[in-house]
């Protein structure tokens, strides 16, 4: 069965959640992935930096800007990670973390307690080299983007290898350093084929269906797409990472719209400014969108605070809300989708 999304998509900005928190606490630091639990809790994986390893953790928030704590830390012990790249939540509300340096998948239960980890380094079937994307399929198996092996592997949730798709290359069904992965409402698999500048679509059994995109910055073109998400209505959202935007398509890959970002101050940010009156006053004359003398999207984003800056991950919740996570602004922006 194929879900069709043929009507016109509209996206309306709702809110921004986030705050720079290098060393833990309410906020995020250089986040790389986001996952939404069925109770509305939003999990954000902060990858952080070599000098701010306390910032490496999973933070929990909700759309009402409540912060529900954090767990996980830098290290190689069980329950720790050194370069976390992706998270996913399964039907039992267990959260899985992919570490693209340790080449292991770590499982936490619904109360954020460490359960187990698995994964072996290598390029043989079932081995991992740079796991960077995770999603559970409809049968509860875990699809792992094994990006340095240019493939997607399927495992049971406790790490037993089942099958794989892909291989290195640019032909259909092949990948070049793939990154994010998503499951459509009909079980089809979408992979952000990062360095091929395209998104590929596969049947639940791994058979290649089609692909979309080529290198560029025009509508429908990509510059290193890092993630993909599919709504219940079939609309497809692509984090067009180096173009610093999110593009939306219908299920036939017909271009719908593009977002550049329009973040506002989150309540966490507002509270900070209220506590730092010199900055609050200085910000009174602040113009968030200014005319810039560069066309480089990365540089433009660096200069305009409300724009996406490294929109690395996208998710859609059951209410049709689109979440766009930005690494360099330590926040996510939320948009409500509707179609007419």
């Amino acid at each position: 069965m194929t879900t069709q999304a043929r009507s016109r998509l509209e996206l309306k900005y709702l809110t921004t959640v986030g705050f720079t928190a290098d060393f833990g606490g309410r906020g995020f630091h250089l986040p790389v992935d986001i996952s939404i639990r069925n109770d509305g809790r939003i999990f954000v994986m902060s990858r952080s930096s070599p000098i701010a390893t306390p910032g490496m953790r999973i933070g929990i928030a909700d759309l009402k800007h409540k912060f529900h704590g954090e767990f996980g830390s830098f290290g190689t012990d069980p329950g720790q990670f050194t370069r976390p790249a992706a998270i996913a939540i399964n039907g039992q509300n267990h959260l899985f973390v992919a570490d693209d340096s340790l080449n292991r998948i770590t499982e936490f239960d619904s109360k954020n307690n460490y359960v187990r980890h698995w994964g072996e380094t290598g390029d043989k079937p079932g081995q991992l080299s740079g796991p960077s994307g995770l999603v559970f399929d409809r049968t509860g198996n875990l699809l792992v983007v094994d990006h340095l092996n240019h493939r997607v592997q399927m495992f049971t949730k406790d790490g037993r290898y089942i099958s794989q798709i892909g291989g290195s290359g640019s032909r259909r069904g092949q990948f070049c350093f793939p990154w994010g992965i998503a499951l459509g409402p009909d079980g089809r698999i979408y992979v952000a084929d990062w360095r091929n500048d395209r998104v590929q679509r596969f049947a639940p059994d791994g058979e290649f269906i089609d692909m979309h995109g080529k290198s560029g910055s025009a509508e429908g073109q990509f510059n290193r797409p890092s993630d993909v998400a599919v709504g219940a209505d079939g609309f497809i959202y692509v984090a067009d990472w180096m173009n610093q935007r999110v593009q939306a398509f219908d299920s036939e890959w017909k271009y719908q719209t593009s977002l550049r970002g329009q973040a506002t101050l989150s309540p966490w940010a507002t509270e900070y400014l209220a506590a730092n009156d010199d900055e609050r006053r200085a910000r009174e004359s602040f113009k968030p969108v200014i005319e810039v003398d560069t066309v480089d999207p990365h540089e433009v984003s660096a200069r305009i605070e409300s724009y996406f800056w490294d929109p690395v991950a996208v998710e859609v919740d059951s209410e049709g809300r689109l979440y766009v996570l930005e690494t360099n602004r330590h926040r996510f922006q939320v948009y409500q989708s509707s179609s007419s």
Partner: peptide, 24 residues
Amino acid sequence: ANTPYNTQKMRNNTARPYGYIAWQ
């Protein structure tokens, strides 16, 4: 551009709330 705010952020040595804003 945005001299007062960017200068204040520099003086306060703060990347909050959303990181630094590269100057123009």
